[in-house]
Design a protein around this nucleic acid. Sequence first.
DNA 1: CCTTGAACCTGGGCGC
DNA 2: TGCGCCCAGGTTCAAG
Length: 297
Amino acid sequence: MPELPEVETVRRGLAPVMEGARILAVDQRRPNLRFAFPEDFSGRLEGATIVRLGRRAKYLLAELDTGETLVCHLGMSGSFRIEARDGTDLPGVFHMPRGKESVHDHVIFELDGPAGHARVLYNDPRRFGYMDLIATDLIDRHPWFSALGVEPVGNELSAPYLAERFRNKKAPLKAALLDQSIIAGLGNIYVCEAMWRSRLAPKRLAGELVTKAGAPREKLDRLVPAIRDVIAEAIEAGGSSLRDHIQTDGTLGYFQHRFSVYDREGEACKRAECDGTVTRIVQSGRSTFYCPRCQTG
DNA sequence: CCTTGAACCTGGGCGC
DNA sequence: TGCGCCCAGGTTCAAG
């Protein structure tokens, strides 16, 4: 499911009930998701207090007062929802119909926090998500994190940085932008959208956005703000809600209505002066949506 | 290095 | 109504 804006939306929704909350109980309903849960998963969580709920790339990080951090990745179909004491869902973060049990509720956290008693449920039909407990001071050296690139929103993402990373790179731009070790948190939707915004061709080789001397070309200067803006706007909109993740209360996740190319195969290009048609191709086994008429840079 | 294809899973949509 | 096929927001691994 989730690219950075969706994970950030989940973080913001969970933070009010999780930050400062004590974990009363953890119901781990199966031995594994994508990977096996760590040894004594519930035992290491129960009794701990969540100091802070953070995010790095597409990872959710619940820092505990035990020196460990609960690390969650939502894979393709993972979601969290919050149930209040009376069993009804709170508005905010959920994708399931209100109050409905699911065989895909794999982990349930019982919390006692500033907002009172609440249950936080992790649901993941495809089980591509995963969780682990990692010593907080070792996270940066953990294999999942040590190679991650820069966050797309912030000062670290700059044309000179991308020029350095793209220089002499033979991979298509699409593949380079999905590479988490260059920019961390972009996924298929926002890569397509950023390339459309900057009028860049998905098949263009990443190295072609850089001069022989290693300086950013004008194409790269266009790309950087396109990435930053699309991610910032998507976070502002509460991310995108697709397919089984359609919001039921309409308060979150409406960026899908602002897609310019993603999932719009055969429809008209939205650029004012352009009469092109959005086309779908497959690159590295994944759909790329773009307008061949105006994305020629 | 780079690319492709497959693997991990379940479910929705579509054509017949 | 059912079946088979294709597709899906991610990551990782093998093989060419």
